[in-house]
């Protein structure tokens, strides 16, 4: 266990925004996250939580520093390799569900599998299985517009999990939901984490939820303090 390399490793990772004035949204972040960990990221608004998540999720590129995923330096990869990793290794859940409005719940969950080149049949089986897992077996043919916020968020979680990613990222996945639904979704994430030994990194403002995590990372003004 100890000599196994971490799933995610940040070395002096920095993101600077330059809109006339220089702004360090993430400042020299160093961090190791081990396989199967459930990590909570907390910090005040504007502290750089989303910035960090976008960098780890390969949605954004750092200004300097190194990011290793599964031991590979992802900052030097081509668009094709990065989008391949987004598809197969990473699963992202946003604060807002961000489902494709023209597609049904089932089709939304199937989409990453189709992008990966899986057959329709295979994709459908996996997607149905996952939607059952998040408690939506009766709602598969509904479009996002016909589902509640909590239901859509569960579809988004099923979608993030569809390609069996080794890392699942959630940027305030329960932020838009009422406490009861939020707790339920949190429980779901925790259960999936234990069942499949996937690595979870979740941003939350809820200290109580954070306290249940394996590790809490605090961000203040773009700087990390690991607890």
């Amino acid at each position: 266990m100890t000599n196994e390399s971490p799933v995610i490793e940040l070395k002096n990772l920095t993101k600077v925004y330059q809109n006339g004035v220089e702004f360090r949204a993430l400042d020299n972040a160093n961090l190791r996250i081990e396989k199967g960990e459930f990590v909570a990221i907390v910090g005040p608004s504007g502290s750089g939580k989303s910035t960090l998540m976008h960098l780890i999720g390969l949605l954004d590129s750092p200004s300097s520093g190194t990011l290793l995923i599964d031991g590979k330096d992802v900052t030097k990869m081509s668009d094709k390799e990065r989008s391949g990793m987004r598809n197969s290794i990473l699963g992202f859940v946003f604060q807002y569900h961000h489902l494709l409005p023209d597609f049904t719940a089932l089709e939304n969950v199937m989409m990453p599998l189709l992008i990966a080149g899986k057959s329709r049949e295979k994709a459908k089986n996996v997607a149905e299985e996952l939607l059952k897992e998040v408690g939506l077996e009766g709602r598969m043919d509904h479009r996002p517009g016909e589902l509640s916020g909590g239901q859509n968020q569960r579809v988004a979680i099923a979608r993030a999990l569809s390609c069996s990613p080794s890392i699942v990222l959630g940027d305030e996945p329960t932020g838009n939901l009422d406490t009861k639904t939020g707790d339920m979704i949190y429980e779901l994430l925790r259960r999936l984490n234990k069942e499949y030994n996937q690595t979870f990194i979740v941003v939350t403002h809820n200290e109580e939820l954070a306290s249940k995590a394996d590790k809490i990372i605090r961000l203040v003004d773009g700087k990390i303090t690991v607890q």
């Binding site: 949605l59 094709k80 989008s83 391949g84 987004r86 598809n87 961000h98 409005p101 989409m111 992008i115």
Partner: peptide
């Protein structure tokens, strides 16, 4: 635009 961003987040390449 937003849907394009979502598709990219799911792993759709520029070419696709």
């Amino acid at each position: 635009t937003r849907e394009i961003g979502i598709l990219k987040a799911m792993g759709t390449s520029k070419k696709s």
